[in-house]
């Protein structure tokens, strides 16, 4: 098991009057090599959950197990460097994540801290820049000279350069255009399928991740109110408005198809091309039936 959370709660300012509970009694089990989507309304605890996976936050109750590292509430944590080398975390606001004088320095920061040689770190930086579709000429620029979208890509590249086993991304597509978002999702999907990386993505655009995600987790007011496969999410989709989320359009269309053609046992087609293809097949079958009757 790559990640296991047992009765985990997290409270900010736990020992003061200003305490604020962000997570309550969350249980989670994620196997290695899966792509998981996490969704929920703003303030539902998604970002807090992600920071627990990298040891940036420590649970105030319960136990977090990530790979071979165990973090138990109230106990002194072990050295976290090995955990952070293997769990790459992309924060919600990339402009606050870049702090070095040049983009290249920022990209090699992680690999150097985790023991890579300067040459290897520079090679990884260039590879990550290429993976994110950024021009190598940007490497000598100050991160604040980049556009919003470039900064977002640079922040993701800074984590890819560390080559972690688990990639945790907090709304990675928030400031990217549609094409870049699609390319990023496909890259993460490829890393998951071809290199066996575990990928966890927080997103508000469920429709874009639906065709790729193996598992889903829905958060509401600090609790994990749904955990399961994409099929399970489709079955529970009508509950989503109650959690402050709208039913994604692909699921809406699929539910209509399911009802019209009795497809409840089928694996849902949730990409536009998949839906179009299934619709064509159904129309063809209907037409064949109509001809047979005639």
């Amino acid at each position: 098991m790559a990640i296991q959370l047992e009765h985990v709660s997290y409270t900010y300012d736990a020992r003061s009057l200003l305490r604020q509970t962000a997570l309550q009694d969350v249980n989670l089990e994620l196997a290695e090599g899966l792509l998981t989507g996490i969704a929920g309304a703003s303030g539902s605890g998604k970002s807090t959950l992600l920071q627990l996976l990298n040891g940036i936050l420590l649970p105030t109750e319960g136990t977090v197990r990530v790979l071979d590292v165990t973090l138990i509430a109230g106990r002194k944590p072990p050295k976290l460097a090995s955990l952070r080398r293997r769990v790459g975390l992309v924060f919600q606001f990339p402009e606050q994540q870049l702090f070095a004088a040049t983009l290249e320095e920022d990209l090699i920061f992680g690999p150097l801290n985790f023991g890579a040689s300067p040459e290897d770190a520079a090679r990884r930086a260039r590879k990550a820049v290429g993976q994110m579709g950024l021009d190598e000429a940007l490497l000598s620029r100050h991160p604040l000279q980049l556009s919003g979208g470039q900064r977002r890509k640079a922040a993701i590249a800074s984590v890819l350069a560390m080559d972690p086993d688990i990639l945790v991304l907090d709304e990675p597509g928030a400031t990217l255009d549609q094409v870049s978002r699609m390319e990023l999702t496909q890259l993460l999907h490829r890393l998951c399928r071809e290199e066996g990386k575990t990928v966890i993505i927080v997103t508000h655009r469920l429709d874009e991740l639906l065709p790729y995600a193996d598992l889903w987790m829905i958060m509401h007011e600090g609790r994990a109110v749904f955990q399961g496969t994409t099929r399970g999410l489709v079955d529970e989709a009508r509950q989503l408005p109650g959690y402050g989320l709208s039913v994604p359009q692909p699921i809406q269309y699929w539910l209509e198809l399911e009802e019209a053609y009795g497809l409840q046992t089928e694996e849902p087609c949730l990409s536009p091309s998949g839906l179009a293809e299934r619709l064509t097949q159904l129309a063809f079958t209907e037409a064949k039936k109509a001809r047979a009757y005639a």
Binding site: I56, L98, N113, F114, M162
Partner: peptide, 16 residues
């Protein structure tokens, strides 16, 4: 704090 978190998550934890 956010920058410190970003540094920590990439192997430079102030505490360690």
């Amino acid at each position: 704090q956010t920058i410190m978190k970003a540094q920590a998550s990439r192997g430079a934890d102030l505490k360690e």
